[in-house]
């Protein structure tokens, strides 16, 4: 009578919807960060003036919305893995694995939402720049997006964001295991960069300087899988403390 197994995926799906609903505020938060990104202006430039001519150049980059999105998803990952959320998650039905599956589900939803949103914003940013400045003032290669370049941008943004999402989740889980990691992680990273900067650079090059999209996708997917898997593994024996 007692032995009927509970379906892990069914519980994880219920938890996923529960978490999606309880973190719905993050969807609005994303819109807010992107509006700030849109109007936050260029990332620098210069002015020069001669006797009759004055030139002001402002540089804009799509990296700004992407950085905002990364911070947004990092905060979401830390919230999902935090202690205050944990007590809420385990109030009803849950175990570590179902909780991780639901968390990863929410993060992947946010990832897709944030990735697509950021890409669309790139278009919006161009549109805004185009109409807010007089014609002919915008100088850039690839300012006018083609369908192909937009698709490529979407793929690149999604892949970079996936890597960041998985890394954020691991950081969140480590901090959940011990608050010491809030100090330890930056310290280790800093020390590593000082002592063996080359290795760190090689890791960066491995991901960032990959010219083939399919190979880049393969690297990112594998890394994300490893990061998520490792997060699940190291926290499987963690107790629920509220």
């Amino acid at each position: 009578m007692f032995s009927a197994e509970t379906d892990l995926w069914a519980v994880a799906a219920k938890q996923y919807l529960y978490k999606l609903k309880s973190h719905s505020g993050f969807a609005l938060g994303f819109v807010a960060t992107q509006i700030i990104a849109l109007f936050s202006g260029g990332i620098g430039g210069f002015s020069s003036s001669g006797s009759n001519v004055m030139v002001t150049v402002t540089r804009y980059t799509s990296a700004v919305p992407f950085i905002y999105t990364s911070i947004w998803i990092f905060v979401l990952a830390l919230t999902l893995t935090g202690r205050s959320d944990e007590k809420k998650d385990f109030s009803l039905v849950a175990n570590r694995t179902s909780n991780h599956l639901a968390n990863i589900g929410v993060l992947l939803s946010a990832w897709l939402y944030g990735g697509v949103g950021t890409t669309l914003l790139m278009g919006l940013q161009r549109w805004y720049l185009y109409f807010s400045s007089e014609q002919g003032e915008v100088i850039a290669n690839g300012f006018y997006l083609t369908g192909r370049s937009l698709a490529l941008a979407l793929a690149a943004i999604l892949l970079y964001l996936l890597l960041l999402t998985a890394a954020s989740y691991l950081i969140g889980v480590l901090i959940r295991i011990s608050y010491l990691f809030t100090v330890l992680l930056p310290a280790v990273l800093f020390a590593w960069a000082r002592l063996n900067g080359n290795a760190l650079q090689r890791i960066g090059t491995f991901f960032l300087r990959e010219p083939s999209l399919s190979l880049f996708a393969l690297k990112v997917l594998t890394a994300a899988l490893v990061l998520f898997g490792f997060s699940v593994l190291i926290s499987s024996r963690l107790e629920v403390n509220g």
Binding site: F2, A4, E5, T6, H23, S24, S91, V93, N95, R96
Partner: peptide, 29 residues
């Protein structure tokens, strides 16, 4: 509990409810 080791067991969790005054739910609910 229900003939299983309860720690981190989903089947036990599905059949068990723990009610105390620190039971918390999402703020938005």
């Amino acid at each position: 509990v229900f003939e299983r080791e309860p720690f981190n067991d989903l089947t036990v969790s599905a059949k068990t409810l723990f009610v105390d005054d620190s039971m918390t739910f999402p703020l938005s609910f």
